[in-house]
């Protein structure tokens, strides 16, 4: 478990490619620089895709974990 306190949480479970990335983008749009977004996904493809999203958009992944078929990401908004 991460001890980071997110500004907002996004439940992207049950969504398939490319929706977890889309929803993450939408959620980040409504946040301010320095805010932290927690995303929970169930799509195993989101591990590679969220990393790619982070590299391209420069919203840094502070922490990530997986377990019980769920993948959790903490994004720091650029």
């Amino acid at each position: 478990m991460s001890d980071i306190t997110p500004t907002q949480e996004l439940d992207a479970r049950g969504l398939n490619c490319p929706l977890p990335v889309h929803r993450t983008k939408q959620a980040i749009k409504g946040l301010e620089s320095g805010d932290v977004l927690k995303v929970i996904a169930s799509d195993p493809g989101s591990v590679a895709d969220m990393a790619a999203f982070s590299r391209r958009t420069h919203h840094e992944i502070l922490d990530q974990s997986e377990g019980d078929g769920e993948f959790v990401f903490f994004f720091k908004v650029k």
């Binding site: 490619c17 490319p18 958009t57």
Partner: peptide
């Protein structure tokens, strides 16, 4: 898919 995701990637 590609168009919307590319846009999401700025």
């Amino acid at each position: 898919i590609l168009a919307s995701t590319a846009a999401a990637l700025d």
